[in-house]
């Protein structure tokens, strides 16, 4: 499987990455190379093998339903670019 220039552009957009148009071809080639590398696994016979959801053979540990996080808003907001009235401010988004 190899990626086209358009597909790279789309993936970059979905990931909100700014890629210069002149770099698209190069990325397409490199990413296609990575896919080809992974594609070698297609040679393995996976008939009857349950797909794995996680590489570690273990199951999720559960936490008791008890609030135990103190309010540390001031500390978190000290590193935020803009705050007001307890809210984090971001460039306007409206749909």
């Amino acid at each position: 499987m190899s990626l086209s220039r358009d597909e790279v552009e789309k993936i970059a957009h979905l990931a909100r990455l700014a890629v210069r148009p002149e770099d698209l071809e190069g990325y397409a080639r490199e990413l296609s190379g990575i896919l080809a590398f992974v594609e070698q696994m297609d040679a393995a016979d996976t008939e009857g093998v349950t797909p794995m959801a996680h590489p570690v053979e273990a199951s999720q540990r559960l936490r008791p339903d008890e609030p135990n996080e103190p309010d540390r808003r001031d500390r978190f907001q000290a590193i935020a670019p803009a705050v007001e009235a307890g809210l984090y401010l971001v460039p306007r988004v409206i749909e």
């Binding site: 936490r63 339903d65 008890e66 609030p67 135990n68 996080e69 309010d71 808003r73 978190f76 907001q77 009235a85 307890g86 809210l87 984090y88």
Partner: peptide, 19 residues
Amino acid sequence: TRSKIFSGAATAYGAAPNT
């Protein structure tokens, strides 16, 4: 629930923003 699904923060409605 009293706490969040993946963290120990409280879920009470109407708390001051981001507390």
